[in-house]
Design a protein around this nucleic acid. Structure first.
Lengths: 171, 171
DNA sequence: GCACTTGATTAATGTACATTAATCAAGTAT
DNA sequence: ATACTTGATTAATGTACATTAATCAAGTGC
C-alpha cells in the first residue's frame, strides 16, 4: 500500500492565498490594525492617473495611457507630521481659485517666502492670504478686490501657520 | 540567596514599545509590507482639519479647534476600485474652477446624471465637461465661452468614463 | 477505462513560543 | 547609607511551528 514517489507540481499552488502572493507576519500597533487592513484591501489606494490621450472604451478596460499610479496621501503630503488641513471660509482669495469650503493642504515645514499663499492666524481667526514682503514691510494680500491687504507689524498678534500647497475643491 | 518575593509593578512597562501600545502580528502580502510600514509610520496620514476660529500660537501647540482628523484617501475616494485620476489639459472648464494641470478625482461608480461634471473620451482624447440632458438630447457643455457644446448622438464615439468628485489644484 | 478514495506534497495562515528588553527588589560591597 | 550586582518579573518582538488548504498521483472497485 504505497502512495509514495515524486510529486512534481503537487501541493497547494503558490499565489492561491487571499492576496495572490506570499505573505509575511508583521507586528502592528492594535489601533492601526483596522486601518491597515482597509489600506491593504484597497491596494494602498494606488489610483491610476490618466493623461489626455486615451484608448476608446472604459478606463477599466485598458491600462494604456496610464501616466502613473498615485497614492493621494503620498502625492499631496510631503511632510506628514508638519501638514494640516484648513477649511476655507470667506472669499478673500477667490481670484486665486480658492473658494469657500475648499480644503487647503498646508505644510508648516515650508519656508513662508514672498509670493507664497499662506495660512495666518489673525485675531483668533485663520485666514488665507498671499504673503507679500517688500522693503521690511510684510503684507497679507487678498486676491479679491473687495478685500484690503493686512500689514504685519511688530507686536500685532499675527502668526503664520504654514504654506498652502494644494487646494481641494469638491464638485 | 533568595531574590524572590512579590514584584508588583515589575517588568517591562506597557506601552514601551516603538508604537507606544500593544502590537499584534498580522500577515501582509509582501508587496504591501513597505507601503504599510510607511503608512503606520505616518500614523495613517490622519491630518488635523482646522476650522476658521483658532487659538493663538502655532497649530502644533494646540489641538483645540480641530474639527476632525482626515485621511485624504478615505475622504476623497469613496469607491477605491472605481476611482481614477485625470490630469486636466485645456481650459474649457475654467469657469467651473477647473484649471489646466489640475488633477481630477473621478468616480466611475456614480451615476452620470444631468448637471454633473463628467470625464468623457471624445476622439481618443479625454475631456471634462458638464453633462446636459434635455429632451432626449445629450450635450457635453464647456464652461468657457470660447468653447462650444458637443452633442452626443447614437453612433459617435463618445464614452463617459465617470463623474468628477473633486478637483486638486496645486499652488 | 473511469470514477472515486487515500495518502503525499507543498503553500497559506494564524498564533504559540523563545528571545530580548525594561523594570523592580533583594542581596552585597564599600 | 549608598551604589552596585544579581535574580525575578513582565511586556515587546520576531519567527518557528502546527494547522489548514489545495493540489498531485497511486491504488481500488466496477
Amino acid at each position: 500500500m504505497k502512495h509514495g514517489g515524486k510529486r512534481t507540481g503537487a501541493g497547494r499552488p503558490r499565489g492561491q492565498g487571499q492576496f495572490g502572493e506570499s505573505t509575511k507576519p508583521i507586528r502592528l500597533p492594535e489601533s492601526m490594525v483596522e486601518p491597515v487592513l482597509k489600506f491593504v484591501k484597497n491596494k494602498g489606494y494606488k489610483l491610476p492617473l490618466y493623461g489626455s490621450k486615451v484608448a476608446a472604451g472604459s478606463p477599466a478596460a485598458t491600462d494604456d495611457h496610464v501616466e502613473a499610479h498615485l497614492d493621494l496621501n503620498e502625492y499631496l503630503v510631503q511632510n506628514p507630521l508638519a501638514t494640516f488641513l484648513v477649511r476655507v471660509s470667506g472669499k478673500s482669495m477667490i481670484d486665486a481659485g480658492i473658494q469657500e469650503n475648499d480644503i487647503l493642504i498646508v505644510d508648516r515645514a515650508l519656508q513662508a517666502a514672498h509670493g507664497k499663499i499662506v495660512i495666518a492666524a489673525v485675531d483668533g481667526q485663520l485666514t488665507v492670504k498671499r504673503l507679500h514682503k517688500e522693503n521690511n514691510q510684510v503684507f497679507l494680500m487678498p486676491e479679491n478686490k473687495n478685500f484690503k491687504p493686512i500689514e504685519i507689524k511688530e507686536g500685532n498678534e499675527i502668526f503664520i501657520w504654514g504654506v498652502v500647497t494644494n487646494v481641494i475643491h469638491a464638485i
